[in-house]
Design a protein around this nucleic acid. Structure first.
Lengths: 119, 119
DNA sequence: CTAATTGGTAACCGCTCGGTTACGGTTTTG
DNA sequence: CAAAACCGTAACCGAGCGGTTACCAATTAG
């Protein structure tokens, strides 16, 4: 199964979004989603076959992790279908870029990421 | 059917790539792909329902066109799964960019696109 | 008017998908 | 060693997909 077919299922997309926050075990993924453990196992097999996840065996546990490089075909299709976004990827050829840092109040550094360590 | 499920089928992806070069009729699309005309018609119905194509009736002909805005959910998922590419979209904040054009041999303008007019 | 072109729909069929339950295998725990 | 935890696989099933052929409506061409 390719990456496109793998992304067609909403459960698999949800699994990938969960894995985007870090690796997880099958049991944890099954607890976080409304399907049985064998169903999760089958989805993970397909996702791995599609190159979207990677596995690491740790004793009796099995850790699945998101493999972002598997999304390349999807990104590729998007670029084929939208060939003229802001710049065509080579718009900076023939330019010399000179970058100077300016001191400025930094926007508060994205506090909306991870760190729920208060729990 | 949503955009993800619509993109899961390779025939539909091929149809979209064809439509990326401009609108087309059902007959033309069926001639350009190895399936029957009713099959193309059904695919186009799904693609339109998914928001990936748009229709325009012109007498007895029906012109289908690519609707790039329907790809937004796909692009959105990619950004959710890859939250930190080269730059996080705000990496240029607080910088001053100074751009100077330099004269340089331009790479030969991508001759590997279309134009098979020799046939 | 008649014929041809264009395109949607209905009916049907084979196959795969996504889910479940049941079972076995391996590794850790007590 | 025995029990529990973790995980994969097999068998099964209902539903939907993707394809075909056959048919009909609408519009254009002669």
């Amino acid at each position: 199964m390719d990456a496109f077919a793998a992304l067609a299922d909403p459960v698999r997309r949800a699994l990938l979004l969960t894995l985007a926050t870090g690796p997880a075990r099958v049991v944890d993924l099954a607890a976080a989603h409304p399907i049985s453990r064998p169903a999760v196992s089958k989805h993970l097999r397909l996702l791995t076959e599609a190159g979207l996840t990677a596995v690491e065996d740790r004793g009796r546990e099995r850790h699945y992790a998101l493999n972002r490089s598997g999304l390349a075909p999807v990104s590729g299709l998007l670029h084929e279908l939208c060939p003229t976004p802001p710049f065509p990827e080579t718009a900076l050829d023939g330019l010399d870029l000179e970058v100077r840092r300016t001191v400025r109040a930094r926007p508060p550094s994205r506090p909306d990421l991870q760190q729920e360590d208060t729990a």
